[in-house]
């Protein structure tokens, strides 16, 4: 037990650094450093970026966007995917189930990053569009997991009993089925959040989706790559923060999951 507690503390410490910077960073006053030359070797640690601005300022401001976009996209995907999966599982009409779920089988035939690039190639590049696209890419998986979880609950004897008592199908779906699958869905939300975070970061790095003026950690890695020999910290620090956040979230959600269902 003590070893588990120590591991848990280590995971939280790993998460605290990137999450703290992402959430609190934008509130901190900027260091007020003047713009100097790009990748200035004489600048105080951690140096300057490709425009000559302080890397430290950029780091403090650059986490919020990625975290907020990933969280918003995950929330939106569940908001849309939960009712679809629930309706597909609860309905007693097979054609409705097919109409709701079949299109997702086709979307799943495309790699998610490819699907995102395709949508980004025709959509206007704004932050909200990226939220929409990432939510849309995550939608098929969520709808399928909700449906799979709800199928069992929706065909439980309790449902037949409620049906015989004259409860309407909507009431059954909302009061019984939705409530009984909430734990499964909540456990899945963690996995989806990490996935959304991955997609948002990859999109920013590839320069699609977000506008050109945005400067999150992934964009920093991209634009400062050219100066990696002169000013490595401008690339290494944002990349390390992204890796720490991703690894930390993965370990945390895995730990929460295995605590819920002991192996």
């Amino acid at each position: 037990m003590t070893r588990n507690r120590a591991e848990f503390a280590a995971i939280l410490a790993l998460l605290a650094v990137p999450l703290g910077i992402a959430l609190v960073g934008p509130l901190l006053p900027s260091t007020g450093a003047e713009r100097t030359q790009p990748f200035d070797p004489a600048a105080p640690w951690p140096g300057t970026d490709h425009l000559g601005a302080s890397v430290l300022d950029r780091l403090l401001d650059g986490g919020w966007g990625i975290v907020a976009t990933a969280a918003a996209a995950t929330a939106l995907a569940f908001l849309a995917g939960f009712p679809i999966g629930l309706a597909a599982a609860s309905t007693r009409r097979r054609w409705l189930d097919e109409i709701l779920m079949r299109p997702f089988d086709l979307l799943l035939a495309l790699p998610s990053l490819l699907l995102m690039l395709l949508l980004a190639s025709i959509a206007p590049p704004t932050a909200w569009m990226l939220v929409l696209i990432v939510a849309f890419v995550n939608l098929p998986d969520i709808a399928r997991i909700v449906r799979a979880a709800a199928l069992e609950a929706a065909h439980h004897p309790v449902v037949d009993a409620m049906w015989l008592q004259g409860e309407g199908p909507w009431r059954i779906a909302l009061t019984h089925t939705a409530c009984s699958i909430l734990p499964t869905v909540a456990a899945d939300a963690g996995v989806r959040l990490v996935g959304a975070f991955y997609l948002v970061a990859a999109a920013s790095f590839l320069g699609v989706g977000a506008g050109p003026e945005s400067s999150d950690w992934a964009v920093m890695v991209d634009v400062n790559r050219g100066g990696i020999f002169l000013s490595p910290w401008a690339v290494v620090l944002p990349a390390a923060l992204l890796v720490a956040l991703s690894v930390g979230l993965n370990l945390l959600f895995d730990r929460l999951l295995s605590r819920r269902e002991p192996a």
Binding site: Y198, D222, R225, P232, V235, P238, A240, N250
Partner: peptide
């Protein structure tokens, strides 16, 4: 294997490069 499960490839790549 749990930790590295969904690390953004580009971040891992630039860390390895540096």
């Amino acid at each position: 294997t749990v930790g590295l499960y969904s690390v953004p490839e580009f971040a891992l790549a630039v860390l390895l490069v540096s």
